[in-house]
Amino acid sequence: MAQRVVVTLSDDIEGGEAAETVAFGLDGKMYEIDLNAANAKKLRKALAPYLAAGRKIPARIGAGADAGADAGPGAGSGAVGGRNRAAAYTHTDLAPDPAAVRAWAQSNKMDVPARGRIPKRVYEAFREAS
């Protein structure tokens, strides 16, 4: 006998049926919320000025479902996937782009490998200079 499983999402704000799961990040933590179309639009509108002024952080390879994969239509909008890439940073800090750190270190005559892991001391110096 065949079975059919139906999953219905409920809007986490108002109840009722949700249209999508929206994933977003704040202070180093990822969140998901199920919203109807109107509430999803309100959330995106409220976040729009911050998204426009912010910098996108690429998702870490292999971050899996925690990065919002398969979270539904539009789930990746404004989401910060994965964890911070630099071990020198705490969960509340966003790791800078390694290419930018490497370029800064080279322009400041710091010893930094052309490939591979950037030493913690280089990230710390970059952070202090910023």
Results as ranks from 00 to 15, higher is better:
Met1Cys: 10
Met1Ala: 13
Ala2Tyr: 11
Arg4Gly: 11
Val6Trp: 11
Thr8Gly: 01
Leu9His: 01
Ser10Asn: 12
Asp11Ala: 00
Asp12Leu: 05
Asp12Trp: 05
Asp12Tyr: 02
Gly15Met: 01
Gly15Thr: 00
Glu17Leu: 10
Ala18Cys: 06
Ala19Pro: 00
Ala19Cys: 02
Glu20Asn: 07
Thr21Gly: 11
Ala23His: 08
Lys29Leu: 12
Glu32Ile: 10
Asp34Gly: 03
Asp34Met: 09
Asp34Ile: 02
Asp34Ala: 10
Asp34Arg: 05
Leu35Ile: 01
Asn36Glu: 02
Asn39Trp: 08
Ala40Pro: 13
Ala40Trp: 06
Ala40Thr: 11
Ala40Gly: 13
Lys41Ile: 03
Lys41Asn: 08
Lys42Met: 11
Lys42Asn: 09
Leu43Phe: 14
Leu43Ala: 07
Arg44Gln: 08
Lys45Ser: 13
Ala46Cys: 10
Leu47Ala: 14
Leu51Cys: 01
Ala52Arg: 07
Ala52Asn: 06
Ala52Trp: 05
Ala53Arg: 09
Ala53Leu: 09
Ala53Lys: 12
Gly54Ala: 14
Gly54Met: 05
Arg55Glu: 13
Lys56Phe: 12
Lys56Ile: 12
Pro58Thr: 01
Ala59Gln: 06
Ala59Gly: 05
Arg60Val: 04
Arg60Cys: 00
Gly62Val: 00
Ala63Arg: 00
Ala63Trp: 00
Gly64Ala: 13
Ala65Ser: 12
Ala65Tyr: 14
Ala65Cys: 09
Asp66Phe: 13
Asp66Glu: 14
Asp66Leu: 14
Ala69Asp: 10
Ala69Trp: 10
Ala71Glu: 11
Gly72Met: 08
Gly72Arg: 04
Ala75Phe: 10
Ala75Tyr: 09
Ala75Gly: 12
Gly76Arg: 00
Ser77Ala: 14
Gly78Thr: 01
Ala79Leu: 07
Val80Thr: 07
Val80His: 04
Gly81Trp: 02
Arg85Gly: 13
Ala87Phe: 09
Ala87Asn: 09
Ala87Glu: 14
Ala88Cys: 07
Ala88Phe: 06
Tyr89Glu: 07
Thr90Val: 01
Thr92Cys: 05
Asp93Trp: 15
Leu94Gly: 09
Leu94Ser: 09
Ala95Val: 03
Ala95Leu: 09
Pro96Glu: 05
Pro98Gln: 06
Ala99Leu: 15
Ala99His: 13
Ala100Asp: 15
Ala100Leu: 15
Val101Ile: 11
Val101Asp: 10
Arg102Met: 12
Ala103His: 11
Ala103Trp: 10
Ala103Thr: 12
Ala105Arg: 05
Ala105Gln: 04
Asn108Pro: 14
Asn108Ser: 09
Met110Tyr: 12
Val112Tyr: 04
Pro113Met: 06
Ala114Gly: 11
Ala114Met: 08
Arg115Glu: 12
Arg117Thr: 10
Ile118Phe: 03
Ile118Trp: 04
Lys120Gln: 13
Glu128Ser: 15
Glu128Met: 15
Ala129Pro: 15
Ser130His: 15
